[in-house]
């Protein structure tokens, strides 16, 4: 009787309905992630996997200069991408939220998201065409007479990776900031102006603090996936622009060393999580200080 009553309750129905999706995520996400974690403590000798638990991979990953360099570089590049993307995105989100008439806002947001949905591979490849030695940018600048020699610092290095990823992740930064700006009660801004603040101080003391949750979301949404990007460093990065995902792929598919690849994947996840938590923690403090 009690069971039947429970089965009719909201909670039971909710669980029942959410269970196919939740089970799918459990089986295909949680289990594989656990497997990667286990693998990182195992070792591989050619085709046989030695399942004795050891920290050998972690010691190697942390002491080998190549792995360390790739980790640091991935964090550096991701941080640069995040900074560039969010700084470039904020004015756009601000413009659409505050200066575009209400009925045209969806159109702007749609226009901003379209390039993001078109073939990622081809977009990245075209940046190679734009930034190359005989590329669109160089020939244009030379044609106009701004430069005499083609610029070489913009392809096959970390700069190229930053430019290309800043392009690829633009909507990820714009949308959360836009949503946060949309939520701001416009009368607060009027109140601030009425109370004698200038437009600039109103922006820094009212608008920006209220938009901070969106900015934080944008930072996380850009920073976390970019650290694991594979295509961009491979196509436009050159040897000095490769990142940790390229090494993870090499370990799995070329060197046939899945445990080492797993270790690097786990370390990458740990680093991303740690940096994200520190960032969110710092902002909590900052936001509380504002009150």
């Amino acid at each position: 009787m009690k069971l039947r009553q429970y089965l009719r309750s909201d909670a039971a129905r909710g669980y029942l309905l959410v269970s196919p999706t939740a089970l799918y995520a459990l089986l295909l996400l949680a289990v594989p992630l656990a497997a990667i974690f286990a693998f990182s403590f195992w070792t591989q000798d050619y085709l046989t996997i030695d399942k004795t638990w050891t920290l050998k991979n972690y010691r190697e990953a942390l002491s080998e200069p190549l792995y360390r360099e790739l980790m640091f570089r991935s964090v550096r590049i991701s941080a640069a991408v995040t900074l560039a993307t969010v700084l470039l995105a904020f004015p756009i989100a601000y413009f659409v939220s505050f200066h575009v008439p209400k009925e045209r806002k969806s159109l702007w947001i749609f226009l901003i998201t379209i390039p993001f949905w078109t073939s990622y591979l081809i977009r990245v490849f075209l940046w190679k065409v734009i930034l190359g030695y005989n590329g669109v940018l160089n020939t244009t600048l030379q044609g106009v007479g701004i430069i005499d020699e083609p610029l070489t610092f913009i392809l096959y290095n970390a700069n190229a990776v930053v430019i290309t990823l800043a392009h690829a992740f633009a909507p990820f930064a714009i949308l959360p900031i836009f949503v946060a700006l949309e939520k701001i009660d416009r009368s607060l801004l009027e109140a601030s102006l009425d109370l004698g603040e200038s437009k600039v101080t109103t922006f820094f003391r009212v608008t920006l603090p209220l938009a901070m949750p969106g900015v934080i979301a944008a930072v996380l949404i850009v920073f976390i996936p970019t650290i694991g990007d594979y295509v961009t460093p491979r196509l436009v990065g050159g040897p000095n622009g490769l990142m940790i995902a390229n090494m993870i792929q090499t370990q799995f598919l070329k060197l046939n060393n899945a445990p080492m690849g797993a270790t690097l994947a786990v370390l990458a996840m740990l680093i991303v999580t740690a940096i994200s938590l520190v960032f969110v923690g710092l902002n909590r403090k900052f936001l509380r200080g504002q009150k």
Partner: peptide, 26 residues
């Protein structure tokens, strides 16, 4: 509810290479 939905939405922010290699291993 929040936790379950969070877990389901997780692939949205997880680097794709992590999803790919972990599935491959299994």
């Amino acid at each position: 509810k929040k936790g379950i939905m969070g877990a389901i939405m997780l692939p949205l922010v997880l680097p794709e290479i992590i999803v790919a290699v972990s599935l491959l291993v299994v």
